[in-house]
Design a protein around this nucleic acid. Sequence first.
RNA 1: GGAGGGAUGGCCGAGUGGACUAAGGCGGUUGUCUUGAAAACAACUGUGGGGGAAACCUCACCGGGGGUUCGAAUCCCUCUCCCUCCGCCA
Length: 421
Amino acid sequence: MLDIQLIRQDTEQVRAALAMRGSEFNIDEILNADKQRRELLQETEKLKAHRNTVSKDIGHMDNDGDRSKLVAEMRNVGDHISLLDRQVRDVESKLESLMLELPNIPDPGTPQGTNDNDNVTVREVGKERAFDFTPKPHWDIGSELGIIDFERGVKLSGSRFYILNNAGARLQRALISFMLDLHTSQGYSECYLPFMVKQINFTAAGQLPKFSDNIYHDVEDDAWFVTTAEVPLTNLHRDEILDSDILPLYYTAYTPCFRREKVTAGKEVRGIKRGHQFDKVEMYALTHPDESYRALEKLLADAEETCTKLGLRYRVRRLCTGDLGFGSRITYDIDVWAPGCNEWLEVSSISNCGDFQARRANTRFRPTKGTKTKYVHTLNGSGLGLPRTLIAVLENNQQADGTITIPEVLRLWMSGEETIG
RNA sequence: GGAGGGAUGGCCGAGUGGACUAAGGCGGUUGUCUUGAAAACAACUGUGGGGGAAACCUCACCGGGGGUUCGAAUCCCUCUCCCUCCGCCA
């Protein structure tokens, strides 16, 4: 959520900044509702102050004519107040829903652009491995080694579901453990989170109201399946006022992620790249506003370290204004190279959301004792998405004889095994 | 799932319709005293909104929402969460 005061004062800058995202937003309607709200508030509060004073006087009066005259008068004032209060409530809920639809303002340094073609590659790390045979895509590797079962996944749950077997399942588990341990050593505290959360968590994280299409949920129990650990992590300190000396807070968590993914089809469906259920290890930070850009670089460096430790070739891209996520001010993507399916796979998206989520989640801190509270800044980054990392590990480490060499950092969780197959 | 009991400020805890401007205590901050500390004493000690250049004024908030009333922490309805007991259960 943006600061309404900012919209009020720097209307044109806000309008211009949001326009860079490539869609129209109704700022005028917001300003209108805001003005209406304040006018109604002043009116109703004046009446309430009056009623409070008179009611107090009534309490001290004898039960005579004057008293009943005042009571009658206050009854009228009360009716007027409830009328105005109803109007205030209406305009406030209208204002709130409008505010919740507004995305974050892009960082001024964000490259201009309309879609992912305009994202800017910051650096490329690692060399492409020279194969003396044609590298296979992971769906062939997985089937041949019997470690990915597509048919039975579909039988159980429909398209976009698969089963990992034996070394496949174990390799994913090894990756999760490796990532969690690495992030812990990088200064994150690990947490195990609920995989279903209440709707309010999604609103606070900025996934609702806009992306309800993508979220599986059970209406009866207000149970919403997490689309990313970012959602519960954003809400860990919802409605809290933090002591400034505990900032920055760094968290890491493994969760499955559930997404409807209605939009894509065709080539995107092949293999395990984009399922309705996938695993992810997430990094998350809550920081002092002055520290969030430094924290962004930390998250990026920590995600990159995950790639280098696994020996993966990757590139870092800075997202353009048109590709930026709803709540983000600035986002880096990390893509790893997959030689079998012959494409860059996005394994991480690292964002500084500024105070956007903190406003929605009402997460504040007190800079120094006795001063007013301020909103923290929040950052999130995948560290990393599992299926795509698994794809990259399989495709990059395949051998001519069809076996897979297990990256050294993972062998600890693979009983010391060096190969699969 | 059933029955009963609860939810009050940073914490403990009093408060069953009008001085609640929420008692009292603990904790915290500042001050007095002291060489310093402790003790004692005193004052202050929540969040958010609106108006205002500011001083300041004002409104709301006693788990959430709604209602009754001139007036609600207090009465009514409803929801959530916690505790005790019973049932079921990995």
